[in-house]
Design a protein around this nucleic acid. Structure first.
Length: 154
DNA sequence: GCCAACGTTGGC
DNA sequence: GCCAACGTTGGC
């Protein structure tokens, strides 16, 4: 079992939105970065833990816990001509982009980026490294454990 | 809205 | 295969 941190803009899908969706689950569409795609396609398994991170918003930080609820399958938006995530180089036979489904587990009191930066235990987190922009990054089990046990409040 | 950092594209 | 130009991300 692996652990991941996945960024979402709350104006797109917030942790509250996720909790209200059918099955409390969403297709993680729109990833157009190969490294992030490869994490989903090659490494994610059903049941993997996910820290749901709010980015590009007033208080960026970890807003909840989720889990991977399907293995990867072709991202439907790449085939839709009118869609902003349409990719003319992708075909049904050779899709270029994949996504998993992510399911709500619980909402927590947000752990802001500024707070995350204060813990030596978390200084190796990819999200905290300078210049990091990857929307999906692996979390060390130790980082996951520290966040779940020490920082999560309902 | 600014801008640093970084990924992708495409001409050569 | 190099690398300049361009587009995007995302904190501030």
């Amino acid at each position: 079992m692996r652990y991941w941190l996945m960024k979402s803009e709350p104006s797109d899908v917030s942790i509250d939105d996720l909790a209200k969706l059918p099955n409390q689950s969403v297709a993680w569409y729109g990833v157009r970065n190969y490294q992030a795609r490869n994490f989903m396609r090659d490494q994610m398994k059903v049941g993997d833990g996910v820290m749901f991170y709010h980015s590009n918003c007033e208080v960026p930080g970890i807003a909840g816990i989720a889990k991977v609820s399907s293995t990867a399958y072709p991202d439907a938006t790449q085939f839709k001509k009118s869609h902003k995530y349409f990719d003319p180089k992708a075909t049904q036979e050779t899709p270029r982009w994949f996504n998993v489904d992510v399911q709500f587990v619980k909402k927590i009191k947000i752990i802001s980026l500024a707070e995350l930066r204060t813990y030596p235990e978390l200084e190796t987190m990819r999200i905290l490294q300078r210049g990091n922009r990857l929307s999906i990054t692996p979390l060390d089990p130790a980082e996951w454990k520290f966040i779940v046990e020490k920082l999560c409040h309902a």
